[in-house]
Amino acid sequence: MSRAICDIRKVWTVFGSNVVHENLDLTINAGEVVSLVGGSGSGKTTLLRHIVGLTRPSKGEVLLFGKNLHEMPRIPQQRLMNRLGMLFQQGALFSALSVFDNIAFPLRELRQFDEATIRQLVLHKLSLVEMEPDTGSRLPSQLSGGMIKRVALARALALEPELLLLDEPTAGLDPERSEKFVELIKDIKQALGLTVIFVTHDLDTLVSLSDRVAVLADKRIVANCTLQELEHIDHPFVQNFFQGIRVRLERTG
């Protein structure tokens, strides 16, 4: 099955005189775990924001589940948005709500569950990301950086999305937690079938999690292939990058 879940067509992004994306194409198929790599400031976060419809590219279009989010009526658009979860680079937790309420928020918004069910689901998500149930009453400002990441991930997972977008999910996690995080994503993927697009600078996570890798350089996608195939792509950034992951690839076999 290679249904395109997300289709980015000829996208240009321009901020003032700063051209971030130039004629960028990228297709992501259902069921894949795709990592998006590129130098700092190369426009990875911006691309994720285009995908979830937070921003509109200056030119070109982004299709999600085959539809352009910006050209949909409100109710279907809302439903479509419920099928994706996003983990923001800075967490973006609601600072006025406790951890529990943060995760319960999307569930309550659905108005389909009673409080007992919501409670159970929230505690389940908390245990998924290995947080103690009693952290639920804390406010985001009382959490450490890594904990914020995990709570944000729990919130992104609350609605069991089909498409998960993760902006540097393992930044701020200790190595063991990063590994667990990889396991967690793999588990969910196996149980429910999940498409993941994630941005990372952490090569270990990248190698162990991603099926494909999309490389963003020179304002476009210079490679969109499996990790092994990167070797044959003739681009300085890709070659450099491949040197970094070669050892890891060999180690995992």
Binding site: L107, F113, D114, T117, Q120, L121, H124, K125, L159, E160
Partner: peptide, 12 residues
């Protein structure tokens, strides 16, 4: 297909 949400509803 059964996800946690569906399961939680049944379980409750």
């Amino acid at each position: 297909q059964l996800d946690t949400a569906g399961a939680a509803v049944l379980w409750n």
